[in-house]
């Protein structure tokens, strides 16, 4: 079973790395990270912080673009076009193994992509004489875990949505909502308790949506570096556990739905 998943994962990684679009995204990410150096000239007095934030933001955005495009391609388009997926299923391969393999492959691709972008960023930090901080490593690890949750979410939505537009819109909407979950909770708490609309419509959402504040060490960088905000390795472990459980639940459910989906070329 694990061998079959591994083979699918390797195949997915090779397919995607060979894909010109993916290579272009890597290249573009490198260029944009480099462009961050030019932009820092504007931020006189806080260049180091500005470069760090711009580069981390670019890594996140290009990671997001990379996984959104790839997830749709491997889950939906292959199934719709019936191009390669039928060839897989003539062999003794379960559908959930196919999906798990695809997920593992894209997770590895994301790791490779982020390592490339992180390498470019570290190179520029060294070249510019900016200081290195261990929070870089933590921020990258959290960013990767966050994108793993988004990847799992993209797998689920690619399985259940009927068009690329609805897939992209719903994924981005949930992605954005995940960043303001705490704000939503706060606003609901401040509402009048008789406001049933908030209670019925919004409160369940705050429980269902992913809470990306687990991955926000980069947002608290200055506070942590100055010792004004606490940081613990245990907290990072909890973030890892949250990712495994939440992304795992999404992948399991996607696999269940994928097993029941009708696969036929249209």
């Amino acid at each position: 079973m694990f061998n079959r998943i591994l083979v699918i994962a390797q195949l997915t990684l090779l397919e995607q790395v060979r894909d010109k679009i993916v290579n272009l995204i890597f290249l573009f990410a490198g260029v944009v990270v480099y462009f961050g150096v030019v932009l820092t000239q504007l931020a006189q007095g806080f260049e180091e912080r500005f470069f760090r934030d711009t580069a981390l933001a670019m890594v996140e955005l290009f990671g997001l673009v990379l996984l959104l495009g790839s997830a749709y391609r491997v889950v939906r388009q292959d199934v719709r076009k019936g191009s390669s997926v039928e060839m897989f299923f003539v062999r003794p391969l379960r559908r959930w193994e196919y999906l798990a393999g695809r997920f593992a492959g894209l997770s590895t691709l994301l790791l490779v992509g982020m390592a490339v972008m992180g390498g470019v960023q570290l190179g520029i930090i060294t070249f510019k004489g900016f200081s290195w901080h261990w929070l870089f490593a933590v921020s990258f690890a959290e960013l990767y875990l966050k994108l793993i949750i988004v990847l799992a979410l993209a797998f689920l939505l690619a399985t259940i949505t009927t068009s690329q537009a609805s897939y992209l819109a719903s994924t981005l909407l949930i992605y954005a909502s995940g960043h303001v979950t705490q704000l939503m909770k706060l606003l609901i708490a401040r509402q009048d308790s008789t406001d049933t609309v908030s209670l019925i419509l919004l409160k369940p959402l705050t429980y269902l949506l992913p809470d990306f504040s687990f991955f926000g060490t980069a947002n608290r960088w200055e506070g942590i570096a100055a010792g004004a905000v606490s940081f613990s390795i245990g907290g990072l472990g909890l973030t890892l556990l949250y990712t495994v459980i939440y992304a795992g639940a999404l992948v399991v459910f996607s696999s269940y739905l994928f097993s029941r989906a009708e696969i036929s070329p249209t």
């Binding site: 706060l186 369940p204 269902l208």
Partner: peptide
Amino acid sequence: CSLINGWFAAFAPADSPEEL
């Protein structure tokens, strides 16, 4: 999913949402 999130939410680090 709701149960997992509900349980984990208690441990989520404060992200200064009141400032936004």
